[in-house]
Design a protein around this nucleic acid. Structure first.
Lengths: 288, 288
DNA sequence: CGCTGATTTGAATTAGATCAACGATGGTGG
DNA sequence: CCACCATCGTTGATCTAATTCAAATCAGCG
């Protein structure tokens, strides 16, 4: 009976583009602080995250500074872990700029599974990346950690773009950064085997969020990611990730320290693992 | 022995980011016509493809008209089916605008397989979508049919963007169009079963390239795609596509007429097929 | 007419999803 | 402070779909 109810919920939920997981996980509604900010306020707001703030001269910073100088109206919101920023069907009239914290965008697919399509930390745009106000969101976005997000109406951005070439180029760069991540996601999803996908993911994460580890050449990924989160990023399952992680650990390519601290020991070898599903096998495929 | 040679070639080829298939398929070098064009020339060049020309007011047309009016120097090249536009490692200093014909971008992965990451007809940008001149290509691009491509240095585009807000917005739209396609590719790759992926692909193609078929509500896809090409678009194999096509045909969702003319009979049903790997089954997954 | 490449079919194999079960962990509320 | 509960990490057994391999038919083209 419980099972049936669960199914029913999931079915109904799907109708409105929400997975059952969604519903279960967030019984309480997001608590959001609204801060209507004008130029003066913004000056004190940007780049002061608890975590590593956006680089002082990143494209995003330049863009937001542009907005600031023009004295446009924007909204900063704070989210707590698990809070939803938007979900499919919501208006896509704004762009969202991450100021601090971590946010992920994801889609649901198949039977109640979710695939993380973007993982942002401390900076980055999200939302539907265009300047048309009409559309609707086609994916979910939620805060992973405490996060500060700046919401800007697209008309405002378009107005700024028309006005300032610098802002235009800055916006470009911001979008392009996201584009590159999207490309990496492709590379990831193409790989057949879970180990390959995982290896590739770890390399990507290492490149974007990695810190110098104790050992020379080793990279530390200190995001506290669970196996489930990793699974969602490579379109697989907890169990499969578990096994793959163990495999990589046994091969000495990675190491996991005091729960969740992933260290990439041998990056070149990891790359190999990521590329070749198995370079060893047959390889007569695609001979045309 | 032959087999060994084939392996060796493929191995060596991979080192320079070229699949063996690549090498085998194009024994002759691409023959390319260079047409250095200035403003006056361009006026007579744009939008006169053999195929359906870009809409007179598409973002791309506006953008190119902008270039034209500024009298900037661009290059139009013609490619024959199978000719390579660029491959990984080539400079990414230019943007490529498709004027007529069909072009695809693809990556190689696993053991000599290729995945089509973009499929453009009559219009669209390709190349590394940013305005930095330094990088290198990370994928292949080849002409599928006879094609005319306009090559524009990124510095030229950047210069135009700084100069003209309209051009800036037009470039934006052009990029955004590609972004949407990329998103669709994600949706595609996430699906587990081949039938789902294929159904989704056909729907996408129908939406982008479909024509009204004889029957009401039916959509005709007349691109002359082979099963292999379809397979490359959904990261699968010829055989699997064959079977999936038959399955869809038996269910009366699609029809194939005189070789390669695909007709989507029942679009709504096809959507169902695309969404639910199988809505019927277990569905206890991801219950957290 | 004989080629090459495309399509179709079938059989064998395999990777991974699914399902179940258990100890460990960490946070919550009493 | 402790009991409780949810989630996490791990393992193993089962099952399914898709790749791989092999082979035969068909279509179009020089």
């Amino acid at each position: 009976m419980e099972r049936f109810v669960s199914k029913l919920i999931s079915f109904l939920s799907c109708l409105v583009f929400r997975s059952a997981g969604e519903v279960h996980r967030r019984p309480a509604f997001a608590i959001v602080f609204y801060v209507t900010a004008l130029a003066g306020v913004l000056a004190s707001t940007f780049g002061r995250g608890a975590g590593r703030p956006a680089e002082p001269d990143s494209a995003q910073t330049r863009l937001l500074r542009g907005l600031e100088e023009e004295g446009t109206r924007v909204v900063e919101r704070r989210y707590r872990p698990g809070d939803e920023v938007y979900s499919p069907g919501d208006s896509a009239g704004s762009l969202y700029f991450l100021l601090s914290g971590t946010v992920r965008a994801y889609k649901t697919y198949g039977n109640l599974r979710e695939a993380t399509t973007a993982f942002l930390k401390d900076e980055g745009v999200f939302g539907v990346l265009d300047l048309k106000e009409e559309g609707t969101q086609r994916e979910f976005a939620e805060a992973v950690t405490e996060a500060r997000v700046l919401t800007v109406r697209k008309s405002t951005v378009a107005w700024l773009v028309k006005r300032s070439p610098e802002a235009s180029l800055a916006l470009f760069s911001t979008f392009v950064d996201r584009g590159r991540q999207t490309d990496e996601l492709h590379d990831l999803l193409l790989r057949r085997e879970v180990v390959s996908r995982l290896a590739k993911l770890l390399l990507n994460l290492g490149e974007r969020f990695g810190e110098q580890a104790e050992e020379a050449g080793a990279v530390k990924i200190d995001l506290g990611l669970t196996h489930r989160q990793l699974a969602d990023m490579i379109a697989s399952t907890r169990e499969a990730v578990s096994k793959a992680m163990i495999e990589l650990r046994c091969e000495g390519l990675i190491d996991v320290r005091d729960h969740r601290r992933i260290v990439l020991i041998d990056v070149p070898a990891l790359s190999d693992r990521a590329e070749s599903g198995l370079a060893l096998r047959g390889s007569q495929a695609a001979r045309r």
